[in-house]
């Protein structure tokens, strides 16, 4: 009983602070905008801790956050090797290869109208499919190591980037293209100086979608077979051993890696497409 009371009091306190902050005059300043979600997240964590300890929830169902933090700090070397195996070798290499292939194909597709009309509906269709299901096939072909994970990631990121880049390359107006023609610009000059820069906002849309897909692909592919390291491997084996604190520690790593990856792409976008209305202050 007292556990529920304590949890409710903490919740009410956290919520009241947030309501005060949100309706105050400083609500639109940057520190407050960061503080409010932080308080919310912290309140949830504290309640989680209180409820798990108060009710004596078994560790094999839900470990308290403090224990996850301890496990995280204790097994940094393991987490780091898993991170390198899954993120750097699997997701990142596949992401780079898949996205560059997609951009190159998009440039070719854009050049030939026939290809564009044929490949674009197919690409749109493919982008909606559960491509992650190809993982068992690719693991069979490329072995258990990172190559098969990179292959899954390549296929997963290819279609969203392709479709978005092709859409972006068509985003110049007839007037702009005519101007390039009056300058006597060749196809390649027009491509590099006008159409690729104009395509950047669209391309980054695809790249951001692909960034989240890449990590999902690399982790899920490891459920179908992997060497004895990697985030997906660690999650599935730790679940088997009921070492849930380790699973949660890996999830923290995955969450951090995912948001930093996405953040890096978003930052790059800000630098490259500074001229676009959506980026102007």
């Amino acid at each position: 009983m007292s556990t529920i009371a304590v949890a409710l009091v903490i919740w009410a306190a956290g919520w009241m602070v947030n309501v005060r902050l949100a309706n105050s005059t400083v609500a639109n300043t940057r520190p407050v905008k960061l503080l409010v979600p932080a308080i919310f997240g912290f309140t949830i964590l504290v309640i989680w801790e209180v409820v798990v300890r108060g009710f004596g929830v078994p560790l094999v169902i839900l470990p308290p956050p403090s224990m996850i933090a301890v496990r995280f700090a204790d097994s940094l070397p393991t987490l780091w090797t898993d991170f390198v195996q899954t993120f750097v070798k699997g997701a990142l290499s596949g992401y780079v290869m898949g996205c560059s292939a997609a951009v190159l194909v998009a440039i070719v597709v854009d050049r030939y109208d026939f290809l564009r009309r044929g490949l674009l509906p197919v690409g749109n269709f493919m982008a909606a499919l559960p491509i992650v299901g190809t993982a068992p096939i690719l693991v069979m072909w490329f072995g258990f190591d990172w190559q098969s994970k990179a292959a899954v990631v390549i296929i997963m990121v290819f279609f969203p980037v392709l479709v978005n880049t092709v859409a972006g390359l068509r985003d110049t107006s007839a007037m702009q293209r005519d101007l390039m023609r009056t300058y006597g610009a060749s196809y390649w000059q027009t491509l590099f100086k006008l159409r690729l820069p104009a395509a950047m906002p669209f391309m980054f849309n695809g790249l951001k979608i692909a960034a989240t897909l890449a990590l999902v692909g690399a982790i899920v592919a490891e459920f179908f077979g992997s060497p004895t390291r990697g985030m997906g491997f660690r999650i599935s084996t730790s679940v088997g051993q009921l070492a849930l604190d380790m699973v949660w520690a890996e999830i923290v790593v995955a969450a951090l890696a995912g948001s930093f990856f996405y953040g890096a792409i978003a930052l790059l976008e800000k630098g490259v497409t500074f001229w676009h209305p959506s980026q102007r202050k």
Binding site: N23, P37, F40, T212, V216, I235, V247, F261, Y262
Partner: peptide, 25 residues
């Protein structure tokens, strides 16, 4: 407004993380 400021950033961040990783658990 309080709910917006508290929950919305988390909803957006959750889109960038591979939540599917907790499926086996």
């Amino acid at each position: 407004r309080a709910m917006d400021m508290s929950v919305m950033p988390w909803a957006i961040v959750s889109q960038t993380i591979p939540i599917i990783a907790i499926a086996p658990m």
